[in-house]
């Protein structure tokens, strides 16, 4: 399984970014090989539709699930249409959330916020 988390830095001790669409990086863990890598989030620079582009970048990376504090309705639609599961993160450390995921202790993200109409959210 490949699991992505929006993060602030491209280092393993990074904390989670509060924004999904405009996070500077995505941390991606492959649960089979236990390897991590970081993806630069090109969507962060977009004038609008950042969440949509970020979700598309993750689909291109063949992600199976996302762990995030927040997610907008547009990003959620892209992810859910492709059967990518969205979980709500806990606390601020990315690696801790992978542990919680593997122990089955994360809940699905249910409160999806309204889109920012494509202009800078």
């Amino acid at each position: 399984m490949r699991i992505a988390i929006p993060v602030n830095e491209d280092s393993q001790k990074t904390d989670i970014c509060p924004s999904f669409g405009r996070a500077p990086f995505f941390m991606i863990k492959n649960t089979e090989t236990n390897e991590y890598h970081f993806l630069i989030n090109d969507a962060a620079e977009s004038a609008g539709g950042a969440g949509i582009k970020a979700a598309q970048l993750l689909l291109n990376e063949k992600i199976d699930a996302v762990i995030t504090p927040r997610c907008g309705e547009n990003s959620a639609k892209v992810l859910q249409d492709a059967d990518v599961k969205i979980f709500k993160s806990q606390g601020s450390i990315a690696t801790q959330n992978y542990d919680l995921y593997e122990k089955g202790q994360l809940s699905p993200l249910t409160d999806i916020h309204a889109g920012f109409h494509g202009h800078g959210g």
Binding site: G48, G49, A50, Q56, L59, D81, D83, G115, H117, G118
Partner: peptide, 22 residues
């Protein structure tokens, strides 16, 4: 089309999605 759109109004998972308001 997804790659072309400068406004990020298109996405493709299992099929093409158009975001009208974007």
């Amino acid at each position: 089309c997804v790659e072309f759109c400068k406004f990020n109004a298109l996405a493709y998972g299992k099929e093409l999605i158009v975001f009208d308001e974007v």
